[in-house]
Design a protein around this nucleic acid. Structure first.
Length: 465
RNA sequence: GGCGGGUUAGCCAAGUGGUAAGGCAGGGCUCUGCAAAAGCCCCAUCAUCGGUUCGACUCCGAUACCCGCCUCCA
């Protein structure tokens, strides 16, 4: 069975075949963050989807070269440092570091390369020169260089917008009035006072790169002129990705991307996230509420990427419960398996069913459905003492494979501090002496200190609240 | 106005021309000093109205409502 992915370019699900003749290596470019503030959970919805895609491809034996750009020069960044007077690099460095930390907390694999726009200025200039040479770019009176969409007849193919119908709306940027045509976009922006020290020399004078050119450049530089997959949020289809295609293909004469994947947006309580609505969350906001990155990841990954995800704290709570059940099952399996070893060479039915479901354009719901069916079935067998150690070991091996693709970071098994452990031991003694009153008091004390204690036939178990 | 997506149980969400996966919540039971945890079981006829069909939630048409993009945005 082959992997099928929904290609925005054709608006159909297609068999995925890497450009690499061996079919093994895959080139994946993901539009990364603009580092001017903390990324929010909507941003991470997309990054988690991309991580799932990568992990699934890797589990199928692909070697994925994953590039995610860091946009570290852009209008909002410039505005921020203009106000604070902070140095560009130190400002963006802070948010870049926070972004990578958040990726880790969410269990996302670090991309193979995370190139910065400011470190590719030479390549950007070279690409613009090539576009100029090819007659699709022009320098305007304001000193900026623009791409002429009229010279690129297939402009609008990805977003299915008719380039001749593009009309000025309310959001026309005031500083782009020198363009020849409304749909033209900036490749190089001439320096203006507001840019302050954020400036580079170029054949067209001092200035800075436009928004879209960095991705074209970094994609080409790190992955080649034609790549397999390019991902981003659905709002990037137009204009960002449309413009990337125009630039790249006009520069190289080759197809830029073979398959485009776009994730739908995340809503909070059914509405777009916004700070004024009070429904704006960063990962750190949720951590402060006591949730874990693992719980958020599950909530984000468990909804199909092309469906709007309505995030609520209730969903996050549901994710927590689901994970508890999964963890308890995994622990039960592991104990049941004991020292038995599974045949590592062939996947079991759970691993195959899970992977097969993901092959259908990452049908995560189907995949999770398969997982929970296996869970219930095996629990039933363990209840009836009908599951042998060998079977348990095989299921355990499958679960590990599934867990790896889901990218659920291992839950923190940090032991209880000595004080709590001592109280728990004291309670155990009280219970053995059938001193229930003392036992219950100790449970309350432990609870008040932020831990819960649960009894089972095998003894007690401490968990952090 | 143009283009696109959606409407399945309290919430989230698969799926298919032959009679509805799964998760959370809820209910029942088991276990248990109590509790918690855990386990098992139960819990829908698929927005509305027409049509095609032996048969539609699944195909066609219409209606209603929701959402996204149309140069800030993952």
């Amino acid at each position: 069975m082959s992997l099928r992915l929904y290609n925005t370019l054709t608006r159909t699900e297609e068999d995925f075949r890497p450009l690499d003749p061996s079919g093994k290596r895959v080139t994946l470019y993901c539009c990364g963050p603009t580092v001017y503030n903390l990324a929010h959970i909507g941003n991470f919805r997309t990054f988690v989807f991309e991580d799932l895609l990568r992990r699934h491809m890797e589990s199928r034996g692909h070697e994925v070269r994953h590039v995610m750009n860091i946009t570290d020069v852009e209008d909002k960044i410039i505005r921020s440092i203009h106000e604070s007077g902070e140095d560009l690099r130190s400002f963006t460095g802070r948010f870049e570091a926070a972004f990578l930390e958040d990726l880790d907390a969410l269990g996302c694999l670090r991309p193979t390369v995370t190139p910065r726009a400011t470190e590719h200025i030479a390549e950007i200039i070279a690409m613009i020169q090539k576009l100029e040479k090819n007659g699709v770019a022009y320098k305007a009176a304001d000193g900026s260089v623009y791409f002429s969409i009229e010279k690129f007849p297939s402009y609008g193919r990805l977003s299915r917008l008719d380039r001749t119908q593009l009309k000025p709306g309310a959001r026309v940027s005031q500083d782009e009035h020198s363009k020849e045509a409304y749909g033209d976009f900036a490749l190089w922006k001439a320096w203006s006072e507001r840019d302050g020290k954020v400036v580079w020399d170029s054949p067209w004078g001092r200035g800075r790169p436009g928004w879209h050119i960095e991705c074209s450049c970094m994609s080409t530089r790190h992955l080649g002129e034609t790549i397999d997959l390019h991902c981003g949020g659905e709002d990037l289809v137009f204009p960002h990705h449309e413009d990337e295609i125009a630039q790249s293909e006009a520069a190289t004469g080759k197809p830029f991307v073979r398959c485009w994947l776009h994730s739908a947006h995340l809503l909070v309580d059914g509405r777009k996230m916004s700070k004024s609505e009070g429904n704006f969350f960063t990962l750190r906001d949720l951590l402060a509420k006591g949730f874990t990155g693992r719980e958020l990841r599950y909530a984000l990954v468990s909804v199909h990427y092309r469906l709007p995800l309505n995030f609520t704290l209730e969903n996050l709570e549901a994710a927590r419960q689901t994970l508890r059940r999964l963890d308890a099952w995994a622990e039960r399996l592991r104990e049941k398996a004991g020292g038995a070893t599974a045949d590592a060479s062939k996947p079991g039915s759970l691993a195959a069913a899970f992977s097969g479901a993901l092959d259908a354009d990452l049908n995560i719901s189907d995949a999770l459905g398969n997982l929970f069916e296996a869970l219930r079935e095996s629990n039933r067998r363990m209840d009836g003492n009908e599951l042998g150690a060998k079977d348990a070991a095989e299921l355990w091996r499958d679960w590990k494979a599934v867990e790896r693709v889901l990218g659920l970071p291992a839950s923190d098994p940090a032991g209880a501090p000595p004080e709590i452990a001592a109280l728990a031991e004291e309670r155990k003694a009280a219970r053995q002496a059938k001193n229930w009153k003392r036992s219950d008091e100790l449970r309350d004390t432990i609870h008040a200190k932020g831990w819960s204690v649960k009894d089972s036939p095998e003894g007690y178990k401490l968990t952090k609240l």
